[in-house]
Amino acid sequence: MKKGVLLVNLGSPDSTNPKDVKRYLDEFLMDPRVIDVPRWARILIVRGIILNTRPKKSAEAYQKIWWEEGSPLIVLSERLQEKVQEKTTLPIGLAMRYGSRSLKKGLQQLVDQDVDEVLVIPLYPQFAMATTETINVKVEELRNAFFPQLKISSFPAFYNKPEYIDVLSKSIEEHIKNLDYEHLLFSYHGVPERHIRKSDITNSHCKIDGSCCITPSKAHEYCYRHQCFETTRLVAEKLGLKENSYSVSFQSRLGFDPWLKPYTDRTIERMGKAGIKKLAVVTPAFVSDCLETLEEIAMEGEEIFHETGGEEFTTIPCLNDRDDFAQLLAGWIDKWRIVDVDKAIA
């Protein structure tokens, strides 16, 4: 069998035009693993409320961070794909879960190269229902409908793999080693608390009570909250960060249901009011800089920090197309070329 790889990221609107943003948000927010309520309720919330108010505001936010080449997330993903392709002989495809660069197109491009076995790599270090799971479910739907001949495997979450922690830690260290900062904030994308409980394969472990994430359990294989805290712990250990010099928060909440806490915006505000003058923020749930890192953190976060008394606010870039990150992915891919996916990441 001829093997190929499909890198998958979130996606982006085709442009900053409100119509394109609205089309993108409709596909994204109508995903039952993103807003996990009955379809009638999702239609009411998304098409009855959100899409009548949010596209214009989101379009303005995209305009602030848009590059000449296009969406930063798309451009950076393409650069990463090119670098990984240079480091391996297997065909490397790229697709987005949402938007015009679809999963179907990505799979078809590999099939057109006579590939009949595909490794799907969700570009998310931590597993979440609204990221990794929705990619895997959609890929399986497409396989059944259009590519029944394909053998497809999915790359597991790599949040705690030593080689990933090495690359992430090196990236952070390069940006803070000459930085006179007082606190390092690890800001992860938030999810509703109910997503954590729905992903609990034991149906009993995840209580989000401050102790379950550090108590060994099979549930951790699919627990986004645990995986975020574990990534932070491992990086802090690798970098020798002192206790109380770093913390974890969660950003980008939507709606009124309880999401993972503490919230990033309120954390930044609290730190400014507490007298912290120099704050650095890293966003390890993202491998590519995007709206959530370039606008929500680097712009809105900095504004909040300055308004509450903070002075120096530093945003640490995502891994993007770093050579060592591309080499890490290529190494895993080459191992998969000769063994199965579980052994490739072991």
Rank of each mutant, 00 (worst) to 15 (best):
S204M: 11
E86P: 02
K207G: 01
M96I: 04
Q126K: 02
L80T: 05
E307W: 13
N17Q: 09
S288R: 00
Q327L: 10
L94T: 02
A285W: 00
A145I: 02
P72R: 02
V248K: 03
Y188P: 04
L29R: 12
G70A: 11
A61H: 10
S247R: 13
K105F: 14
E78R: 15
M129K: 15
L44K: 00
G331W: 11
E60Y: 06
L185F: 11
G210A: 07
M96C: 12
L168G: 01
E27N: 12
E296N: 07
Q251A: 11
K218R: 14
G301M: 14
F229T: 06
I74D: 11
C223E: 09
S58Y: 11
P162Q: 13
E68Q: 12
P32Y: 09
N203H: 15
R23K: 15
K56I: 01
N17H: 11
S153Y: 00
D257W: 06
F147L: 05
F127N: 04
V115S: 04
K177C: 05
E86L: 08
F127K: 04
T231G: 01
T132I: 13
I297A: 14
L291I: 13
I43G: 00
K105R: 14
E68H: 11
H183C: 11
T16F: 10
Y159G: 00
P122I: 01
E303V: 03
Y263S: 14
Q85K: 07
I92A: 05
E230A: 15
D14L: 09
W67F: 03
T89S: 15
E69S: 12
L291H: 06
K3N: 05
T293G: 07
M299H: 15
F186D: 09
N136L: 00
M96N: 06
Q113I: 07
A59S: 05
T308P: 01
W40Q: 09
R39V: 08
V341C: 07
E60S: 08
G93Y: 03
N178H: 08
L260T: 07
A344G: 06
R233C: 03
I201K: 05
S247Q: 14
H226Q: 03
Q126I: 08
E302M: 14
V191K: 00
Q81R: 15
L123Y: 02
P148K: 01
W332K: 03
I316G: 03
D324F: 01
L107K: 12
L179E: 15
A274R: 13
E312P: 00
R97H: 06
T232G: 10
T308Q: 05
P216G: 12
E230C: 12
N17R: 12
E60C: 09
S71D: 10
K2F: 06
